[in-house]
Computed example of a mutant assay.
Amino acid sequence: MAKTNDEKNRTDLLNRLKRAEGQLRGIQRMIEEGQPCLDIASQMAAVRKALDSAYVRMTVCFMEQELCARLGDDSRKPLEEVLGDVQTLLGKVR
């Protein structure tokens, strides 16, 4: 199984997860402060979307790495374009 070797992609994924972590901490504070359930639910939905987005990004990174390894680095540019479209399409599924 591939690992996240590209530093740019690794940084992007970590930043996405750190943002989601911050959102989760905010939700915990909201619960501790007794905020309305609808507000908390809204923030929970935002965290779920952020995690879904990170998962899609990780999946596309994996596909890019595996395909480039098997097809050669000459295929990187066309693959990046196609996989960018795939990421956009998968992002609309949620």
Rank of each mutant, 00 (worst) to 15 (best):
I27N: 03
M1L: 04
G84H: 06
D6F: 04
E7F: 01
L13D: 02
T59S: 13
L79P: 07
G26Y: 05
L13N: 00
N5M: 04
L89D: 08
S53R: 04
V86D: 08
L83W: 04
S42Q: 01
L14C: 02
D39R: 09
M58F: 14
K49N: 14
P36M: 12
M63F: 15
C37R: 12
K92Y: 13
F62I: 11
I31A: 12
Y55S: 15
M63K: 05
V93R: 11
L13S: 00
L17S: 03
G72I: 07
I40F: 08
Q35L: 13
G34V: 08
G34Y: 05
N9H: 05
R16M: 15
A69D: 14
D74P: 11
L67T: 04
S53P: 03
L14I: 01
V86A: 10
V60Q: 08
S53E: 08
M63A: 14
D73R: 11
L83A: 01
L90I: 05
T11L: 02
D39T: 12
V82S: 02
L83P: 00
E32W: 01
R94V: 12
L14K: 00
A2Q: 01
S75M: 14
Q35E: 13
M1A: 03
V86R: 04
Q43S: 13
I31V: 15
Q43F: 09
D12I: 11
S53I: 04
A45I: 15
A69G: 12
F62G: 09
Q28F: 00
E7T: 09
M1N: 01
G22R: 11
M44P: 13
R19V: 10
Y55G: 05
Q65F: 07
E33R: 04
N5Q: 03
L83G: 00
G22I: 05
Y55M: 12
D52F: 11
S42W: 00
E80C: 03
R70F: 12
A2E: 01
E32D: 13
A45M: 15
G84P: 03
S53Y: 05
V56S: 04
Q23H: 11
G34C: 12
L51W: 03
A41H: 10
Q65P: 03
M44G: 14
R10A: 00
E81N: 03
K3M: 00
V93H: 11
D39M: 12
Y55E: 14
K77A: 12
R70P: 06
G34W: 07
